[in-house]
Every structure is written in C-alpha cells, then in structure tokens.
C-alpha cells in the first residue's frame, strides 16, 4: 500500500499539536493569593532545601509539621476536601505519586498508550514503514538527553489516513498516523514532527501536566464555593500556559534534529503547511509565532546540504511507497 497516495481527510488534529496538551501552572497567581500569616507560615514550612535532597525540597519540613496540624485541624470527615490537613496530605500524596522514576514513567505511558490503541488500529511492528519510522525515532532519541529508557522505545504507526497527528507518552511511546506520514514531504520533516514529540518526553511535559492538573484540582478543593469566580485562573491553567510548553517543544525539537544531522528548517516548512491545513494560524494553546523559534535554532547550526536532504527524501519516498 502506498501511504503517499492517500489524501488526508476528516479530522485534522493539529500536529505535534496533538501531543501532550499541557496545563502548566505558574506559581505566581497562587503566590499572589497567599498573604499575611498564611504565607508566613508557608514560608517557614517550605524553607530552603535541607541536606542533599533538593529534589524533595520542602517535603520533609512540611511532613514534620503534620503532627502539629492534626491537633488544630478539628475538621469533620465530611469536609475532608477542604480542611488544611487533608490538603497537605493530598499535596504530599500527589508529590509521592508524581515521583515515578523510569519504571513509573513507562507504566504511565503504557496506560495512556493502551487507551490510544483502544481507538486506532496500529500497523504491524514488522511493517517496513513502522521499522523506518522507528529508525528515525531512534536517531533523534540518540541525540537527546533522554537516551536511556526503561524499556525499548515503542514506535507505533496508527493506520488512519484521515488523521494528521503524532503524539508521545512518557516512557518513550511514540505514535504517528499514516495521515501524518502522507502529510510530511520528506524524512527531515518527519524527523522534526517526531523530534517535537520526543522533546515533550525529554522535557517531562507530560508529568508536569499531570502535576499542574493535580495542583489545580487541589486548588479547586481548597477554594470550594467561596471563590466561585476563579474560573478564569483555571482556564489559564488549562489552556493559556500550554503555549510555553509547545514553544519549548518546538525549540528543543529543532535542536534535536540539528544534533542528529537533519535540517531544522524542515520544521519551519512543516509548521507553515500545518497552519494552512488547520485553516487558522495556530491551535489553542500554541505560541502565536511558532516559526521564529525554529528559525533561530536553524540559524545557530551549520547549514545542512541539500544533497543530504534530497538523499534522505529519496529513501523516505521509497520506504513509504512499499
């Protein structure tokens, strides 16, 4: 079957665009809401990191004071979601649960990927197209800071020509649709699409999204009905901040392809076409100007000869025509 001859139709879920939609919380709004004695108490609790365990900064001291909090909490079980003690416990539990390590990341990715597979039919792992995409993924991964993974990276091609999409999950589960394979014009463009996804993994955006979501949920619990007008803040958490992360993934993705030897300018080309395809400049939660960041990365690396790009384009066409 030739994947190059099928015209994409139907849903065009924006590219990389897909991927990991992020809700990143800026601590400022929360900080701004804190004041007076509450903020002082918090400052004392959080303090600075003690000893070598900077990664768990604040947790230990917060746990130390839990005993004291218990005495004064005086809340009934029925108000569990809103009393300070349960919130602290929830926060501690959330922190523990988001400390996953390589195995935990893999299992988180497996859970998410199982749901994707529940929706789409994958090509065989032995399909030449899957093997080819896997080679591109492995090349980009080798250039990343995340060269080690709990298990072998799993690259899955979703057999849906109407879907123009690629996404990734923690633990190096990378998905791309046949619609996206039809959409990209050469191997360098394909590499950029995949590198954007790999950047999300390397930069830990998926888990950050979950952490932020947890924070937002706990915040909602704390605010309860009292702060009914805080919806805007949650909207910002859900949508507004994700532009930062998508911009970060664009920039890092361009760096990864450049490090691997691909032409980062291919990223500019594919972004331009995707924006046209979507019929609007960019999707919700994406930077207003996606191209500049990629162009800056391209300008900071040695130009890639068109001969090399063309040579790779030939094998791209050959592989996808099989």
């Amino acid at each position: 079957m030739s994947y190059r001859t099928v015209v994409p139709r139907g849903i065009v879920i924006s590219l990389f665009l897909s991927c990991i939609s992020v809700t990143h919380v800026n601590a400022n709004p929360l900080g701004g809401l804190l004041g007076g004695d509450a903020a002082k108490a918090l400052g004392g609790m959080m303090g600075k990191g003690k000893g070598d365990s900077e990664d768990q900064q604040g947790s230990g001291s917060a746990l130390d004071i839990l005993g004291g909090m218990k005495k004064g909490s005086g809340s009934s079980d029925g108000d569990q979601g809103r009393n300070p003690l349960s919130l602290i416990q929830g926060a501690m539990e959330a922190n523990k649960n988001s400390t996953l390590g390589p195995m935990g990341r893999y299992y988180l990715g497996r859970k998410l990927s199982a749901q994707v597979i529940g929706l789409y039919k994958p090509l065989s792992i032995d399909d030449p197209v899957t093997r080819y995409v896997r080679d591109v993924v492995m090349t980009v991964l080798a250039a990343s800071n995340y060269a080690g993974n709990y298990s072998d990276p799993l690259v899955i091609v979703l057999d849906d020509p109407g879907l123009v999409n690629a996404f990734a999950a923690p633990g190096n589960f990378v998905f791309i649709s046949t619609g996206m394979l039809n959409f990209v014009k050469n191997e360098d463009e394909l590499a950029f699409v995949l590198a954007h996804e790999i950047a999300h993994i390397e930069l830990d955006h998926g888990l950050n999204a979950i952490k932020s979501k947890q924070g937002a949920d706990l915040f909602k619990d704390a605010a309860g009905d009292v702060v009914a007008g805080m919806g805007g803040l949650f909207d910002a958490m859900e949508n507004g901040f994700s532009a930062d992360l998508e911009g970060e993934a664009d920039r890092r993705g361009a760096e990864l392809v450049a490090l691997a030897g691909y032409d980062p300018n291919a990223g500019v080309a594919v972004i331009e076409r995707l924006e046209k395809l979507q019929g609007r400049k960019h999707g919700t939660g994406y930077p207003a100007d996606r191209r500049s960041a990629v162009e800056r990365v391209a300008a900071s690396h040695s130009p890639v000869s068109s001969d090399k790009v063309n040579k790779r384009a030939e094998r791209f066409n050959a592989k996808l025509s099989q």
Binding site: L34, M45, A91, G215, F219
Partner: peptide, 10 residues
C-alpha cells in the same frame, strides 16, 4: 486564604 495555603505545597 487560610484554606488555600497548603496548596502551595503542591
């Protein structure tokens, strides 16, 4: 505010 400060822990 006193209800929400533990959230900063998160």
């Amino acid at each position: 505010f006193p209800k929400m400060w533990p959230l900063c822990l998160v």
